[in-house]
Amino acid sequence: MKKSVFLGALTVAGLAAGAAAAGTMDDVKARGTLNCGVTTGLVGFAAPDSNGEWNGFDVAVCRAVAAAVLGDASAVEFVPTTGKTRFTALASGEIDMLARNTTWTFSRDVDLKFEFVGVNYYDGQGFMIPKELGVSSAKELDGATVCIQTGTTTELNLADFFRSNNISYEPVPIETNAEAQQQYLAGACDVYTTDASGLAATRATFENPGDHVLLPEIISKEPLGPLVRHGDNEWGDVVRWTLNALISAEELGVTSTNIDEMAAGTDNPEINRLLGTEGTLGEMLGLDAEWAMRAIKTNGNYGEIFAKNIGEDTPIGLARGLNAQWTDGGLLYSPPFR
């Protein structure tokens, strides 16, 4: 008799599984919230404040997607992931998308079967070192002790850089940014290396940020972007074009303040298509016409999000650099909305 109960349970589980294997978009809509994977805490990119509200550059992407799909920017469940757990969390369906400064690499895209939908931050690995050591180039670091945050591509880049320059170093792998910082400040390592944006964010929290310099060498390309599972192209498209909408909005001059008047209709047909007053772009995505408008309205366009979270007026103080629009000499280039 016990066996039949067990078989019954098996059947029920099988049925449930069959029912659940629909597209991610339907899942998200049915659930009413978006499960978005973020870091466990990196100021400026994704960190909970003292009220437990998540804020940051990566968080803004999640919120924009939630606003586009669900119409509610707060309908996001943020799932903190570490370098180790992020890919499993995405592959197993625990999260719908991952926006955790993850580098777009060949093997992640092809071998791990993920789909990077775009780049929201062009980064590169840099070095931070106390000014008093008088080092001006990373090539002078022979014999130095280097703190690395584990679980990223950082270890590999570092090993490659030192090997190709034929100089030696001692790696000190550290789990969290906060601990790496403590080690670095106590002099347990000479250099701290991670993505340049992360270095800037970390330096901003020091008591005396001026005592530390970022070395000019950027030893790797780190295009960071949101990613989704391979094979669910409808969902991938939604995330990709939400990101593109944020970028395009900046290019077209649509901001969170003027969006309402622009939504009434403008002379620029691309703005009209973007904001849904012309054409059926939203319908093609399986969303309503105002999806992009909601996404932009949440936190503003790409430029506004950048300025609010990591821009020059924030403690993190990052310049736009590579992340300027292509019209300003940067790399941000959204495909056209038509």
Binding site: G83, K84, F87, T88, R108, D111, L112, T150, G151, T152, E155, L156, V172, P173, I174, E175
Partner: peptide, 24 residues
Amino acid sequence: AIAVGYMDVTGTLGGITLNQTGRA
């Protein structure tokens, strides 16, 4: 050991190797 960055087997095989290869 992973809490202090000592490279024991959890740090190499269960840490960086797992991260880099994704072979959980």
